[in-house]
Design a protein around this nucleic acid. Structure first.
Lengths: 241, 241, 241, 241
DNA sequence: AATGAATGAGCATTCATTCAT
DNA sequence: CATGAATGAATGCTCATTCAT
């Protein structure tokens, strides 16, 4: 279930081949510290020294676990994506109804990115882009995996007639994630803790309308008519008894 | 008409008090060169040397017109915002109908950001974020001004009942600009020239649906359906007894 | 006359395109300082900081005139070779007699390398070798040019029968320069200022013997015989008068 | 037989007091690995990590047997010198005739340095130079011991009149080893496997000529020639009067 | 007004070496 | 005895910025 996702050269040239327990803890510590620093200042303004200081260790130690600053950053991003992707992959299919699934994704995304102080948001959204083409591919794949659960749902919904089929899937995705990103940005800039649940409801509501087949209401009306017809039939049948 | 927008320290430490005609031309040249370089490499990777070289002048000259690299970049961004803001302020009010106005804004935004080779796009979208708090305010105001025309239209539309009034205005704005931003990112990453007009139509269409007031008749129909359904259920239950 | 010798990328990425008088002086200063430091410690142990300090300037200044430490070192080596090569190219052809030419080259080499404290010797001989293949070619050419005057003389002498023709030219060259190198090394290690002139005479003497055609003495005997024959003939002629 | 040669601080700071059989084997393993790595990359570019990896042991282990990288390298060099010195000390005296002894030394030197892939050559020739004064003495002594057999032979030959006595012994030595060093350099740079035997013969031949005493008979012949020449000149002059 | 020249402050990365386990 | 882990100390190189001319 833990997708390897084009696992590229990650080990530093020097040392670290064994996976001792202490080793593993260090890796996690460094990743955590790096995440916090990178997400606060962005890639360029982050110095390896600051990450080291935050852990009270030497810069050299970092480079004995990660082969470069760039690599460390990529690992941070990958970790974040992997975590949230796994949750979505597990949870989304269990939810019944497209609308509820969309709502889940929206809420989860908002909550996740909000609690990290929007730092990861900046990191994931901005820095991921400028990645030297070397990493561009990795980032792209991570993103694909992350949005896949929703994409799958929407694709199926299009085929089932629950979502308008005349719109390209990527556009639907952009609306979902783009809207959320700006919402998050607002919160960050204004530093106002938002009512996430309310926002999630509102966003989902509007997105649902946006995605609705132009005649969804008529569809409902149709369904209603057949329900009533059924009932009438039953009434007729009952009257004869 | 040229909003001063919290004109903070922009002048270089010394010099530059007179604003001769020659001076003004230089400022524009530098801004133009800076725009092209910044938008090609992004803020961090751009060097003042490269900007200077492109103009065939010395780096020192740049610093005699702009306080710092950061300042120069901000001026570039500001200039871009000012230009497009002015266009929107002039054009939007002349357009009849909320939907057409929305469409205009969407199309204009996509076209403008796309034609600069995705350079300004990256610059405005990414680099604007990391602005040290010093400039955060300026950026915020530029954005406010830029989105103001659309906000005004939407606000009025809410009051007029053309746009659902149960959604906060900023959320509507975030949907509009957020969706577009992601669409642009996609184009940038995939390097596929998009059908801007088609995309603009599609986006506007979906946004319009999202913003549409929930129609009274449909709401009533829904309620009616529930009532009938309940009645039918009672009948079914009662009939068998 | 100033051979360009595969003039490769030398300018630093940054600045320094003009060749002002001040500029030129700086270049020379830096080259001089670099020569002294490189030749004292060798390439690896020399730090750009030390070179800068010796001049009382900043490291950055060095890098504004030379694009890398390696490049600076190569320039130093090239300069040294160019200077002495030019002298040899001019002087050697003016000297009459192969033996005298050999003596000149030996003495010049010893004097030149001795007065620099044998530092250049180490630098030129040792560091030149490990040059990343990038510079290997340049070094090789410099060396070729430097030894060319002697090589030319020896080649001609071989054809003229003054130097034994049964030995490969490079081997002759290696004997000349190899012997001198070790002599210099001895002086350096023992820190005893040598009698250069005496050493030059002795070395030349032995080399001359080494290079002598196996039957050079017989050649001299031949010549002697004809001289005597001539004299006798003259005597005979005189006797008749 | 294993000359201690100013055995300076060689033991690591702590540990290693017992010299168990296992210990000794380790020392040899490390020396062997170090020799191969040092001779491939040179001192500066060799990392202790690489040596350790080649043995499949940890860097720390190396430092528990050798005080420092520098020390390890010196040991390697010393070992090499000791080995070949011992051979020379044993073999040279058994050979009959000065010329044959010279030939043996030359050939042995060329073969030995050539067969290690020019690696030891570079190491011994180049890196030996830069030895901090701390080790300079050791190196000097190693060299002295190494060249001693030949020196002894030459000294005796001088006394016996087989080698010209008017040249300082060190100069003779420098010619021998200097010539060979340059020959080796050439091979290294050009990467052309040489005909060692041919080269040894040629070199020995020329060196033998260089060292040959100026022959009495030829000297006398020369003098005789001068006398006759003078006489002839006088005759010529007198005859005409 | 323009700039050539100089630089201070950084910064990622390397590596020999130490030491507790 | 061996080593995993950690690091201090460098080091080459960059670049925005200043200032005398």
């Amino acid at each position: 279930m833990n997708t390897p996702a084009t696992a590229k050269a990650t080990e530093p040239a020097r040392k670290r081949a064994s996976l001792g327990a202490r080793s593993e803890r260090r890796v996690k510590e460094i990743l955590a510290a790096a995440r916090s620093v990178f997400s606060e200042h962005g890639y360029e303004k982050t110095t390896t020294l600051e990450i080291a200081r935050q852990l009270g260790i030497s810069e050299a130690t970092i480079f004995s676990y990660f082969k470069s600053k760039r690599d460390l950053c990529m690992q941070v991003i990958k970790l974040w994506y992997d975590e949230i992707s796994q949750v979505l992959e597990e949870e989304v299919p269990r939810i019944g109804g497209v609308r509820a699934q969309l709502h889940f994704v929206v809420r989860k995304h908002l909550i996740t990115l909000m609690q990290e102080g929007t730092g990861m948001c900046k990191l994931v959204l901005s820095e991921g882009r400028s990645a030297d083409d070397e990493f561009a591919g990795l980032i792209a794949e991570l993103k694909r995996r992350y949005t896949a659960p929703l994409m799958k749902v929407l694709a199926q919904a299009q085929r089932a007639g629950e979502v308008r089929p005349d719109m390209p899937l990527p556009l639907l995705r952009d609306m979902v994630y783009g809207s959320m990103e700006h919402v998050l940005w607002d919160y960050m800039v204004n530093k106002t803790k938002p009512e996430i649940d309310v926002t999630a409801d509102q966003l989902t509501g509007m997105l649902w309308c946006a995605f609705a087949p132009v005649r969804r209401e008529l569809g409902q009306l149709d369904q209603f008519r057949s329900e009533v017809a059924d009932a009438l039939r039953r009434l007729d049948a009952g009257g004869r008894e």
